[in-house]
Write a protein that binds this DNA or RNA. Structure first.
Lengths: 213, 213
DNA sequence: GTATTGTCTTTTGTATACAACTTTCTTGAC
DNA sequence: GTCAAGAAAGTTGTATACAAAAGACAATAC
């Protein structure tokens, strides 16, 4: 029989806070005092503190010692840096995917591509971003490189925060989302270099860049 | 006047534990019960708990809920994955370094290269690895990419754990360390592709691989 | 001999109390 | 009116107490 592990309050608070940050409910710069969170969640300060410390280690929260913690806000220079690293990591993922692994993951990858396209159709902007993240995450997962996956997860969280923070314009969102299908077809045909080039353009566009600059 | 911030016990324990893990004093798989650490450090369990949670988030500690925490041990398949990501990140760093930034960092980089060579000469193996880490860290720092630097720091911690865990043979350590100087000269001449190729060989050797496999 | 149950021990998870520090507000001097 | 010093309020940092869960071990049933 599968064992049901009841997760600790600390874990639950951690998950909730992370969701609130990634959904934009808690935005960059906002104070998150332990006492008021404790009241809000109906627990003592202990599990709140642990969750906040963990989130700080994760990079989503900034602690000012003996003062208060805030939701981390990302500067535009950091955004540039994140985009650069993201390109490198996704390109590494593409290099690492072999045929067998692609076959294993293609179903998940296409599902998120389709969901993303659908969300675009009905104008659900939040859903577009969510499914876009899941698409890229699935691509990276197909690399089967655990170190890469866990690093990318962390980076993805920051990317989600950035999207909320900078609230990019809608321009070309359709074109951008359409690239997912092209990536998949290039991957399927083993045209990795072309796929990597497309990813470079894709991400630079996503993150508000001129790819040629 | 510069303000002296006295760091919290929690921070101190965090730093100490991290050092003990990275130095090999605490090895992979070892139990780290809160109570005994509390006695050892002469503090209560509270700061110990916070430090352990943060280290778990950092990836150095594995928590088994309601049971105990252990120092994370890295499987050989994860070691492969880490090496692959490491190559990609260092190559990205090389790509990102411009002349001005190289000029700013060359002093630090060379110092660690020299220290590493010296440590090799006097047969101080631990020091060789420490300075080697610092050399690579300095190289990455020259990229001026904050996201890359913080990701690499985390990865570097795992690399240090691996070195202790697998206790690689001495074979070719001299040859390997000698590559540092070649990297620097390639960088200085702007031969980035050659430098990246060398880094690939260097890391694969460091981490116990056949580069051609 | 094996499996099961119940007890004991160990260790974690959470709440709470208090001390210490930071910030803010107020008061007073100039 | 402005600045500085001191008091007050708010928040964090740490210790401690207790409850609850997991694992170890012995006793018992079959």
């Amino acid at each position: 029989m599968a064992k049901l592990i009841q997760s600790s309050l600390s874990d639950q608070v951690y998950t909730l806070l992370k969701e609130q940050i990634l959904s934009g409910e808690l935005q960059g710069g906002m104070k998150i005092p332990e006492e008021s969170l404790a009241e809000e969640f109906g627990v003592s300060r202990t599990p709140i503190r642990e969750a906040i410390r963990r989130l700080a280690e994760y990079g989503l929260v900034t602690i000012r010692p003996r003062t208060f913690a805030t939701v981390t806000s990302i500067t535009s220079s950091e955004a540039d840096d994140i985009a650069t690293v993201r390109v490198a990591l996704e390109q590494l993922a593409i290099d690492s995917i072999d045929e067998a692994s692609y076959a294993d993951h293609v179903e998940t990858i296409s599902r998120h591509a389709a969901n993303c396209q659908y969300a675009l159709g009905i104008g659900d902007r939040a859903k577009v971003f969510e499914e876009d993240s899941l698409f890229h995450m699935a691509l990276v997962a197909a690399s089967n490189n655990t170190a890469l996956i866990s690093i990318y997860e962390r980076l993805d969280a920051k990317i989600q925060m950035l999207r909320i923070q900078q609230n990019l314009p809608e321009d070309g969102l359709g074109y951008y989302i359409g690239q997912h299908a092209r990536m998949m077809s290039l991957l399927k045909n083993g045209e990795k270099e072309a796929c990597k080039a497309l990813i470079h353009e894709h991400i630079k566009h996503d993150m508000g860049y001129d790819p040629d600059q």
